[in-house]
Design a protein around this nucleic acid. Sequence first.
DNA 1: TAGATTGTTAATCGATTAACAATC
DNA 2: TAGATTGTTAATCGATTAACAATC
Lengths: 206, 206
Amino acid sequence: MSQSCISDLVVSRLPLYLRAMDLMIDKGKKSISSHELGKQLGFSSSQIRKDLSQFGEFGKQGTGYDVGYLSEQLRRILNVNHIWDVALVGFGNLGQAVASYSGFIHRGFRIVALYENDPEKVGSKIGDLVIQDISEMVEDIRHRKIKIAMLAVPTSEAQNTAKTLIQAGVRAILSYAPITIAVPNYVRIEYIDPVSRLQQMTYYLE
Amino acid sequence: MSQSCISDLVVSRLPLYLRAMDLMIDKGKKSISSHELGKQLGFSSSQIRKDLSQFGEFGKQGTGYDVGYLSEQLRRILNVNHIWDVALVGFGNLGQAVASYSGFIHRGFRIVALYENDPEKVGSKIGDLVIQDISEMVEDIRHRKIKIAMLAVPTSEAQNTAKTLIQAGVRAILSYAPITIAVPNYVRIEYIDPVSRLQQMTYYLE
DNA sequence: TAGATTGTTAATCGATTAACAATC
DNA sequence: TAGATTGTTAATCGATTAACAATC
């Protein structure tokens, strides 16, 4: 059974299911029905059962889903049952904030490299990490076999930096630049653009 | 013609069209066809024409869309032809980064208030803004008629803070907390969760 | 056992695309 | 005028939901 038959829409919901499971674990809840989970996430129970059934049979009739087991299975499906090394490019305000965010590690990601243009910043230590010059980036990423990068460079440099990252072997990019970046189809790219989300909401205001 | 017949999927693409127009303006490009715009954004030309046609006739046969005019129209449609006042709640690492982000103002948003729990931080000035105690939040937001808030508080406080914001009159929330927040249906909410986006990509890796 | 809830099927609903007459 | 591109229609494609037999 090929993975390619699963819609990206379904995949995009799996992290939300996982998030919810981990919240349940914190609360000490042992099992949950699709109905209850749906209510919590704002999805229909049908949709949750349908989504999960694409990957296996994780529930029990009468009782629902075992929270610990489903969490484990979702981690396996999403490939976050191990920690991924991530590179962060750009250490301006945004890059600094991303670097200091503590929410990555327990959800499967660890920033292991920082690259920056500004010679003033290169060489500084942030926790255990030294900010490296961007000229070392390709060799370093290739050598360390880093596959995921977060992009926090200025918009004008985003496309070129992405290209360089891909040449170095990166296969997934999370970009904070408010611009669409062209990548080959063997590379995944996702965007974080808070302003677009705000504009989406103002459409409905007033 | 009621707005309610327009899908949120369509609305979510409008900010991307606007972003692209503004990039064109910077580049000095005067007009663009749906085909060229689609290529740039990774959408089909049909989809772009269909989306835009829901709001009016903005193009010209033979030449495509006038960049300046379409930009203006999209701003009008999205209600960002004026600047919205925005409140930011939570001034930890994340809140500080959001506050220092310079990309809001020229896309329609201005942070006009900062609220924080920590008495150590309350009273400090950030640019022109004073960090206010969260206890002043409801009265202040109500008085200033602020309708949009960004939520950068710890996960455990997100739901309650959102509730308070809504009581104060906020009608759109951009939440950075990795949790689904329940809101009444007259309130819009969007989420920024970089880790979910990363997990969505690792599904396809290896 | 009786009640609850799953996984799955078929029906519905909605979104995308292909095609083309209209026209700049 | 001839070429290009729109706005729109109809066809296709895909996603969501309702319903229910199976079963814990």
